[in-house]
Design a protein around this nucleic acid. Structure first.
Lengths: 138, 138
DNA sequence: ATTTTTTTTGCAACGAAGTTGCGTTTATGT
DNA sequence: ACATAAACGCAACTTCGTTGCAAAAAAAAT
């Protein structure tokens, strides 16, 4: 596990530091997406707020994580299978937000159906977010 | 136009005030979605920030506008055809965010396809957001 | 049309969220 | 082990959003 984390960081051209190790570990051990405040809580405020912000930004830039659009104002970050291994950013799967437990999940097996846009529109990325009740909360 | 605005407000059980008239007018004359800061700019800060927040909240509650999920941190509000006329909230259409001009549009004719969720998951609301280049910017 | 009641507004104060600059510390490559 | 480069923590600051309250405006009632 330890070794795996360092390998992921290095292969993404990220320096290996305590904060990044810990935050990446959180993503790996968590089934769903994490918000900034989730991370602060789970690390017991061991790291400065700014460090967490900058770490997330670094992970984003390297394509390790991606953001999930939400209707409320919270940015959620998720580490998806594709991104961990390969460097390319390909996450055309559906995201699920549970209104009960609040967790955000990547439904890796549920792919986004292709849609027909009006004439003149060109799609670069399509996001699909489902709100509802998850498996565990039903 | 003036009369139309007042009618919409009244039929949604909203008091007719200067601020609400102006903000509703903005939504009607704008093709896409507006953020809070968009509104502040376009009204030239004529109204207090708090008033704008409360107006948007009131419009939301009455179903006049709805929010559009975005991956960045900005809440965008849009007034859609269905909501203006009828009171019921029905927006199962796709939203489009142009990476060029930044405008957010409701693709009213493009409906969200139904998907098959994994066992145990129950959907309450589905959102679909397309990022790309819009008709005008191509 | 005037008064009463209800709603909305602006102000001030506050709290949360996110950013920037800078000196210090830590990691990396040779 | 050392020089270089990157990341960290701190402080200060901006932006965003909320709440309470008194004044003003709109709606309802007389």
């Amino acid at each position: 596990m330890e070794a795996q984390i360092d390998t992921i960081l290095k292969s993404n051209h990220l320096s290996v530091t305590g904060g990044r190790r810990k935050i990446l570990e959180l993503f790996l051990s968590n089934p769903g997406a994490l918000s900034h405040s989730d991370i602060e809580k789970k690390t017991e405020e061991k790291f400065d707020r700014v460090t967490v912000y900058r770490t997330l930004q670094a992970f984003l830039e390297k394509g390790l994580i991606h953001t999930i659009p939400t209707a409320d104002n919270s940015i959620r970050y998720a580490l998806c299978k594709d991104n961990c291994s390969a460097g390319h950013h390909q996450d055309n799967h559906v995201h699920f937000i549970c209104s009960q437990c609040g967790s955000t999940l990547c439904l890796d097996e549920t792919t986004i159906p292709s849609i027909r846009l009006p004439k003149g529109f060109v799609a670069a990325r399509v996001e699909m977010v489902v709100n509802g009740v998850c498996k565990n909360c039903k």
